[in-house]
Design a binder for these strands. Structure first.
Length: 818
RNA sequence: GCCGGGGUGGCGGAACUGGUAGACGCGCCGGAUUCAAAAUCCGGUUUCUUCGGAAGUGUCGGUUCGAUUCCGACCCUCGGUACCA
C-alpha cells in the first residue's frame, strides 16, 4: 500500500537520524580534500526571515553537493549577537538585551534545524559570550601595542534632548527618531584602527580574489579609492599659517580661483572669532547629518572667511572660503577650487560670483563652453605661464618638480578609505579593553585580566549605556601605576565580531588561544555566501582582520574567503525585507504548511541566487506540487515490482532518448550546481526530466530499468536541495545505505551520443525552417540541404544569394539580396 | 551626489561564448474526473494578423549576415554610502 507524502513525518525522522549519527560533524582529516562552506551568520533578531532561508539553503546545497563529491566539508553556524536591535527591544519590552538575545538564539536555532541544514552544531558560537569576545579584546591590546590603534575626536550624531548618540539609521530627516528633535553633530574622542596602513594591500590583494564577483572587487577598489596627486602648500596672507590641499588635478593649478576649507577647519574656527556671518555658518553646518549621502546631496553652501591665500606659483592672492561640502575627516580638510575644470567648483563659483579661469583646452573636438559648464576632461594647458602647451599628463611632473624645488608641495598617493572608527557609545557590545589613568593615559587591560566582561543583568531605558553609570564596572586601578582610574565604557563596533568569526569556527573550543593550528587546516573559506549589501563594509573589514591576524602569526594566508557568492536580497513589495522596515515574512508558516523541502525548493527555484527575489506567498504551490508528483511517481514505479538490470544496447529509440535526457540533465545539473550556482535552472532541468519520465507508458522490463535509472539520478541530483524527501525515496527505491553518504552519480558518456541534430535555417537572420541531419554531416551537404528546403525557397526564389553562414551544430543563415 | 547591480509575456524567470527569444514554474483559459467542489490528470497560453506573415527583450542611436547579449547617450528602479546588520 502506497504511503502519502507527509513532509512533517519524513523530515523529522531524517533530521533525527542526522542528529543522532552526527552526520555533519567536521573532523580534521588530512587524507581528504577539505571544503569549508560558510554562509554569513545571522543577527538573532527573533525569527528567521526569508533572506536567511535563502542564504542558508544556498550554503547547504553547496555543502551537500561538495560532500557528494567526496570532500571533507565543514559547515558551521553561529550568532552575530551584539547590536542595536537588542537595546531597542530592551527599552520596549523591559528585558535585558542578553536575555532577549539568548531567547532568540534558542528559537532560531530550532528553526534552522527544522530546515534540515547540515551544520556541525558542535562548533556553534555566539559573539556576545566572553568566550568569544575575550579574544578580540586580546587582539585589540596587541594591536594597541603595535601602534595600529589610536584615539582622536570624531563626529557623531547627537540628540540634545535624549542626550544620547544616534546611529545614522536613528536619524530621520535630520531629526531624532524617538523625540523628533533636531540632531546635532558632536565631536567626541573615539578609538580608530589604522586600516589605511593596509589600504595598499587590501587593494592589491583584490587581484588574488578571482573567485569573487567582479562587481564586488570593483566596489571595494572604488571604496579604497587610491589616487595619485600632489599635496600643495598655500601660505595664508599676513600670517605664518599654511594651508595644505590635496589635488589629483595639478594640471589645473594655475586656474585656482579660491580655496575651500571645512567648516570645522581650525583656520575657519579662528577666523570666525571675529566674523559673525562665518560663525553663524559654522553653527549651521553643525546641524548637518554625518552620513556621506546627506553631505553630498545637501545644497552646496559657503561663506568667505575673510582670509586670503598666496598661490604657490604665481604669488597671486586667492580668497579662502568655508564650505559645507569639504569634509574635515578627508585628506587635509581643505581643497583648491578650479571652477573652470570641476563641476562642483563651477556651480559654487557661479552661485557666489567667483572667478572662472580657463587653464585647460581640449585637444580633441570635445565641447568646451565655460558659460554653460566646467570642462572636466584632460587636455592642453593654456593661461598657465611657463606650463603653457604641456598636456595634462606632462604638466603633472613639471608642476610637481617646480613645487618640490620651492618646497611648496610633494607627490602623494591618497586613499579615499578612512580609518575605521570602532568606538560605540552603546551598551550591548564588546567592552573596549582600555583603562584611562590620569597619569599614564590610555592603558590596555593586561592579558591576565581579560576578558573585560560586560555585565548582563542591566536595565536599558534609552538614556544611554547602563555601564556608563555603573561604578562597579568603570572604577578600577591603573594596571601600570595602580592609581584610581576609569575603565573605557564604549564598546566595539559590531563589525569587529563579524570580522573574524569565520576563523574562530575552526577552533571554537580553544580556551587558551584565539586560534590554533586548525585555522590553517580549514582556512581559507572555500565558499562564502552572503548578502550583496555586505559587498564593501563587512567584507573589507574581514579582509583587514585576516591580514592583522596573519601579521600576528595566527593564520598564514593573505585572504579569508576564496570564493564569494553574493546573494540578492529577498524583497517584499519591492523593498528589502528587514526587521527595521517591518516587512518580514516568517518562514515558519511555510515550513509548517508545506515542509522544509518545499521551502528550500521554492527559494532555490524562484530566482538565481545573485538576483533579488521578490517574495510571493502564492508561488510556493508549484514546488510543493512537484514534490508530491515525484513522490507518487516513485511509489507507482516501485509498486510494479523488482527491476532487472539495464541492457543499454538493446533499447529502442524512445528509451535511448530517455537515457540520453537523464545524462544530459546530470551534465547540466552538475555544472549548474557545481560551477554556475544557478540552482533555478538545475531544478528546471530536473523538472523536465520528470515530465519526460511520466510520459513513458512502456512497462517492459527494460523500460522499467531505464526509469529506475532516471529516478535514482533525479533523487541524487535533488538530494542537496531537498534532502528529506530524497532520503526517504532513496530507501523506497531499494537502497539500504542512507543517501547522505552516497556519491554524486557519474556521467555515462555512451548514453549521451546523439545521432541526429536539428539545425535552424534562417534567411536574412529570420528563422524560416528547421532541418534534421546526421551529426557528422559535412558543411557543404548541410548548405545544400538548407538551400533545397521548400520553406527556405519561398524566401530565396529569384533572389541573389550573397552569402551562406553555417554555424556547426546550430544554424544556417542564408543572406539574399533585396 | 558618488560607487555597484537590475529592467525580457499577466507574474517569477530561461537563453552560459553574438546564433531557435520566452525553457521551467505560477496564473489564466478549455477539457477529463466528480452528484458537486477541492485535489489530480490532459491540452492551450508574447502581441497583432488579411493566417501569408509582421512586430517584440526600459528608451533612442550604432556595430554585425545575425544583438536580450557588444558600443554610445538617456530614463526608471534596487543595494551601499563608513553608527542597521
Amino acid at each position: 500500500m502506497q504511503q502519502e507524502y507527509n513532509p512533517a513525518e519524513i523530515e523529522a525522522s531524517a533530521q533525527q537520524l542526522w542528529e543522532e549519527k552526527k552526520t555533519f560533524r567536521a573532523v580534521e582529516d588530512s587524507t581528504r580534500e577539505k571544503y569549508y562552506c560558510l554562509a554569513m551568520f545571522p543577527y538573532p533578531s527573533g525569527q528567521l526571515h526569508m533572506g536567511h532561508v535563502r542564504n542558508y539553503t544556498i550554503g547547504d546545497v553547496i555543502s551537500r553537493y561538495q560532500r557528494m563529491q567526496g570532500k571533507n566539508v565543514l559547515q558551521p553556524m553561529g550568532w552575530d549577537a551584539f547590536g542595536l536591535p537588542a537595546e531597542n527591544a530592551a527599552i520596549k519590552n523591559k528585558v535585558p538585551p542578553a536575555a532577549w538575545t539568548y531567547d532568540n538564539i534558542d528559537y532560531m536555532r530550532d528553526q534552522l534545524k527544522r530546515l534540515g541544514l547540515g551544520y556541525d552544531w558542535d562548533r556553534e558560537l555566539a559573539t556576545c559570550t566572553p568566550q568569544y569576545y575575550r579574544w578580540e579584546q586580546w587582539l585589540f591590546t596587541r594591536l594597541f601595542k603595535k601602534g595600529l590603534v589610536y584615539k582622536k575626536t570624531s563626529a557623531v550624531n547627537w540628540c540634545p534632548v535624549d542626550e544620547t548618540v544616534l546611529a545614522n539609521e536613528q536619524v530621520i530627516d535630520g531629526c531624532c527618531w524617538r523625540c523628533d528633535s533636531q540632531v546635532e553633530k558632536r565631536e567626541i574622542p573615539q578609538w580608530f584602527m589604522k586600516i589605511t596602513d593596509y589600504a595598499e594591500q587590501l587593494l592589491d590583494d583584490l587581484d588574488q580574489l578571482d573567485g569573487w564577483p567582479e562587481q564586488v572587487r570593483t566596489m571595494q577598489a572604488n571604496w579604497i579609492g587610491r589616487s595619485e596627486g600632489l599635496q600643495i602648500q598655500f601660505g595664508i596672507s599676513d600670517s605664518d599659517d599654511v594651508l595644505d590641499v590635496y589635488t589629483t588635478r595639478p594640471d589645473t593649478l594655475m586656474g585656482v580661483s579660491y580655496l575651500a576649507v571645512a567648516a570645522e577647519h581650525p583656520l575657519a574656527l579662528k577666523a570666525a572669532e571675529s566674523n559673525l556671518e562665518l560663525q553663524t555658518f559654522i553653527d549651521e553646518c553643525r546641524m548637518m547629518e554625518t552620513s556621506e549621502e546627506a553631505m553630498e546631496t545637501a545644497e552646496k553652501k559657503g561663506v568667505a572667511t575673510g582670509l586670503t591665500a598666496i598661490h604657490p606659483v604665481t604669488g597671486e592672492v586667492v580668497p579662502v572660503w568655508a564650505a559645507n561640502f569639504v569634509l574635515m575627516g578627508y585628506g587635509t580638510g581643505a581643497v583648491m577650487s578650479v571652477p573652470a575644470h570641476d563641476q562642483r567648483d563651477y556651480e559654487f563659483a557661479k552661485k557666489y560670483d567667483l572667478a572662472i579661469n580657463q587653464v585647460i583646452e581640449p585637444t580633441d573636438d570635445a565641447d568646451c563652453d565655460l558659460d554653460k559648464a566646467a570642462f572636466t576632461d584632460k587636455g592642453r594647458l593654456v593661461n598657465s605661464q611657463q606650463f603653457d602647451g604641456l598636456t595634462s599628463a606632462e604638466s603633472f611632473g613639471a608642476i610637481a618638480n617646480f613645487l618640490v624645488e620651492k618646497d611648496k608641495g610633494e607627490k602623494q598617493v591618497n586613499y579615499r578609505l578612512r580609518d575605521w572608527g570602532i568606538s560605540r557609545q552603546r551598551y550591548w557590545g564588546t567592552p573596549i579593553p582600555i583603562i584611562n589613568c590620569p597619569d599614564c593615559g590610555a592603558v590596555p587591560v593586561p592579558e591576565a585580566d581579560l576578558p573585560v566582561q560586560l555585565p548582563e543583568e542591566v536595565i536599558v531605558d534609552g538614556s544611554g549605556s547602563p555601564i556608563k553609570s555603573m561604578p562597579e564596572f568603570y572604577e578600577c586601578a591603573c594596571p601600570e601605576c595602580g592609581k584610581d582610574s576609569i575603565r573605557e565604557t564604549d564598546t566595539f563596533d559590531t563589525f569587529f565580531e563579524s570580522s573574524w568569526y569565520y576563523a574562530r569556527f575552526t577552533c571554537p573550543d580553544n580556551e587558551e588561544a584565539m586560534l590554533d593550528e586548525r585555522a590553517d587546516h580549514w582556512l581559507p573559506v572555500d565558499q562564502y555566501i552572503g548578502g550583496i549589501e555586505h559587498a564593501v563594509l563587512h567584507l573589507l573589514y574581514a579582509r583587514f582582520f585576516h591580514k592583522l591576524m596573519r601579521d600576528e602569526g595566527l593564520v598564514s594566508g593573505d585572504e579569508p574567503f576564496k570564493n564569494l557568492l553574493t546573494q540578492g536580497m529577498v524583497l517584499k513589495d519591492g523593498i528589502k525585507m528587514s526587521k527595521s522596515k517591518g516587512n518580514t515574512v516568517d518562514p515558519q508558516a511555510l515550513i509548517d504548511q508545506y515542509g522544509a523541502d518545499t521551502a528550500r525548493l521554492f527559494t532555490m527555484f524562484a530566482a538565481p541566487p545573485e538576483q533579488s527575489l521578490e517574495w510571493s506567498d502564492k508561488a510556493v504551490e508549484g514546488s510543493s506540487r512537484f514534490l508530491k508528483r515525484l513522490w507518487k511517481t516513485v511509489q507507482d514505479h516501485v509498486e510494479l515490482g523488482d527491476v532487472v538490470s539495464l541492457d543499454a544496447e538493446s533499447l529502442n529509440d524512445d528509451l535511448k532518448g530517455l537515457r540520453r535526457q537523464t545524462y544530459q540533465t546530470l551534465t547540466k545539473v552538475s555544472d549548474d550546481i557545481g560551477r554556475r550556482h544557478t540552482f533555478n535552472t538545475a531544478i528546471a532541468a530536473i523538472m523536465e526530466l520528470m515530465n519526460a519520465v511520466s510520459k513513458v507508458k512502456d512497462t517492459s522490463e527494460q523500460a522499467r530499468a531505464v526509469i529506475q535509472e532516471a529516478l535514482e539520478t533525479t533523487i541524487l541530483m535533488l538530494s542537496p536541495i531537498t534532502p528529506h524527501i530524497s532520503h526517504e525515496l532513496w530507501k523506497v527505491l531499494g537502497h539500504d545505505e542512507a543517501i547522505v553518504s552516497v556519491a554524486w552519480p557519474e556521467i555515462d558518456e555512451s548514453a549521451l551520443v546523439q545521432e541526429k541534430v536539428e539545425l535552424m535555417v534562417q534567411v536574412n537572420g529570420k528563422l524560416r525552417s528547421k532541418i534534421s541531419v546526421a551529426a557528422d554531416t559535412a558543411k557543404d551537404a548541410i548548405e545544400a540541404l538548407a538551400l533545397e528546403d521548400e520553406h527556405v525557397q519561398k524566401f530565396t526564389e529569384g533572389k541573389e544569394i550573397r552569402k551562406v553562414i553555417v554555424v556547426p551544430g546550430r544554424l544556417i543563415n542564408i543572406v539574399v539580396a533585396g
